[in-house]
Amino acid sequence: MNLLQAIILRDLRIAYRQGSSAMLGVGFFALVVTMVPLGVGPERDVLLRIAPGILWIGAALSSLISLDRLFHADAEDGSLDLLLSLPLPLELVVLAKTIAHWISSILPLILISPFLAMMLGLPADAIGGLAIALLIGSPAFSLLGAIGAALTINTRRGGLLLTILVLPLYIPTLIFGVQSVGAGPGAGTDAITANLMLLTAITLISAVLSAWSAAAALRINAN
């Protein structure tokens, strides 16, 4: 447990020192969301209908920005060797790094999402629903992204490849995430709850899948 905490604190401290990386994600998120009304026009009912989708897609894309550095930075400077030699299953190392990624890169996105949702004209209760859905669903972005990051750790232009590998894995989260915001046609409370539970299940499955497969990928790629 102490070691897990040490890894999380280490990554958070580095992220804090570099500062701009989390802010870049937030900036990207805000820009993507701003571009959409410019593209489709400012009509309120159109925006209202597509707002949950825009916000979820925006969050998914923004989470990708920092993912390619998740293991790559450690591999580059040699500290990955140190992480591989810890008296801790590699699966847990992966989880710890993923948790740190979520806190440093995705949590800021969730924090500004209410403002962006407001700009798109979402009503207050839908904004609350969106924040809850993001809190529950977005850890899957970090987790599934970690698989891609571990797989592409030695590849040149890994960032682009990562995007292609990981985005398809985001689809279930995206679908249930958007559904659970509650702006969908005829969505009642029961439907929202059901979607939130599905979202939880996907995040949990991602955690298991990610820990196992990202660790395997790291072992294969460490040479």
Partner: peptide, 16 residues
């Protein structure tokens, strides 16, 4: 892993 210190050609430093 538990018994060694390994220092490769990369230093393992975080520049920030």
């Amino acid at each position: 892993h538990a018994a060694h210190h390994y220092i490769g050609h990369a230093n393992g430093l975080k520049s920030a």
